[in-house]
Design a protein around this nucleic acid. Structure first.
Lengths: 224, 224
DNA sequence: AGCACAGTTCGGCCTGCGCCGAACCATTCA
DNA sequence: TGAATGGTTCGGCGCAGGCCGAACTGTGCT
């Protein structure tokens, strides 16, 4: 009884709708200003400011001052992981918010999830890589096979070795309820797509917009 | 932009101290009655009842009526996973509650974490199995090696095949900030310790109490 | 220097919700 | 059938905290 970490404090921080919206917006991995986050949350600046200091004190987000702007981002990938887990759970419990705006089709097709590719294209990639034996493992526990590792190296996908995050990780997509690829490999593949000019990120959104040629090249490269 | 699952609703449920205590108590995997949960949370019966219906409606716990008792348990392992993730994050942020009661030494030594062994002994087991090559893999991404699988079979550890949960999984211990073994294998090993009579669970706690002989046998069997 | 704009701080309003006392069901046992 | 016990429902209290208007700080632009 009442041992263990103070889980309630953190959950309470996430549990306010305004703050949850801010955190969800920050899941894109992009740093946003206080004003942008205020409009995300649908509140005035003062209120947002209060929320942001609370989140900062709670260690969930980090602040970076740049001139008269304050940029905020998620504190670390642990926080992003918890948020993804919560999203997965909320989706599983059928509490989708289904605010289907006009932009939704693009979001569903390909979007960024923290630092890797999610959406239909992310799921397709994941399924394809498993079908071809690049990824092996059962359930949500996958690793890169030796031939797979060679293939990635041949394609010029560089896995950063600095981060201690796992090489491969399955990540449950809340819109499709399907797995897609996270971890260092997932990040490297998305970076590759950007640096090859196959896709770009419209400002302030989580959309990943592939060009026609780019999506073709992507599918051909990863044979999906 | 308010897309995505309603993460705030769920986080809000976990975010109340009383409810969080109840959920933490249920992490033992044991089903508890409303009264027990009320005392865990430090509130009266009526208040607890209100919390429990909210948690049930939110899909976080499941209720089972038996005579005049109502037994509650966590709804599924997804919920347990989210709670573990939150505990890990809270521990990482240094928000330990450090309510070090007299029972604490025992809790730290060996306790149950959802359905597997945690605490110092759990960490020792995990490290030992990795050092001996029973578990292989990098970081928190481990699998059972072929010789390891043989050894487990020889010891009479039966992995249930019904559950689709991963065979091996690392689980971050919030007290020691070290990894220990979860997944089907972790569960099977703990079950084995109980069925061999090495250890028992005092009612209503998360403690795993090994007998002197039992702990010796445990350490000898797994060579740690 | 003066203005515009981003963000924060302050003070006050008001709703939400956690809490409990008391009364009300349901089950078991004598 | 009545008493004891475990849970739930109801009603009312009181506080925490989210929200905003207004005033203040700090930065950049002219």
């Amino acid at each position: 009884m009442k041992d263990g970490p103070d889980i309630a404090r953190i959950a309470n921080l996430i549990g306010d709708p305004g703050r949850a919206n801010m955190l969800a917006a920050l899941m894109s991995g992009k740093a946003l200003t206080a004003g942008e986050l205020a409009s995300e949350a649908g509140v005035r600046g003062q209120t947002a400011s209060g929320h942001l200091t609370k989140l900062e004190e709670g260690g969930l987000i980090a602040r970076e001052r740049q001139g008269r702007h304050h940029y905020f981002r998620l504190a670390d990938s642990d926080v992003a992981g918890v948020l993804e887990a919560l999203m997965g759970l909320a989706a599983a419990k059928g509490q989708l918010r289904t605010r289907t705006g006009p932009r939704d089709p693009e979001l569903r097709h390909a979007r960024v999830c923290y630092n890797h590719l999610a959406g239909e294209l992310g799921v397709t990639l994941y399924d394809g890589l498993r079908a071809r034996g690049v990824l092996v493992g059962s359930g949500d526990d996958v690793t890169l096979s030796d031939p797979g590792r060679e293939e990635m190296a041949r394609l010029g996908i560089e896995l950063s070795t600095k981060s201690r995050s796992p090489e491969c990780k399955s990540c449950l997509d809340w819109s499709a309820r399907r797995m897609h690829l996270a971890g260092r490999l997932g990040r490297a593949i998305l970076d590759h797509a950007f640096s090859e000019g196959w896709a770009m990120r419209p400002e302030g959104t989580r959309i990943v917009r592939f060009t026609g040629l780019g999506e073709g090249a992507f599918r051909k490269t990863f044979q999906v």
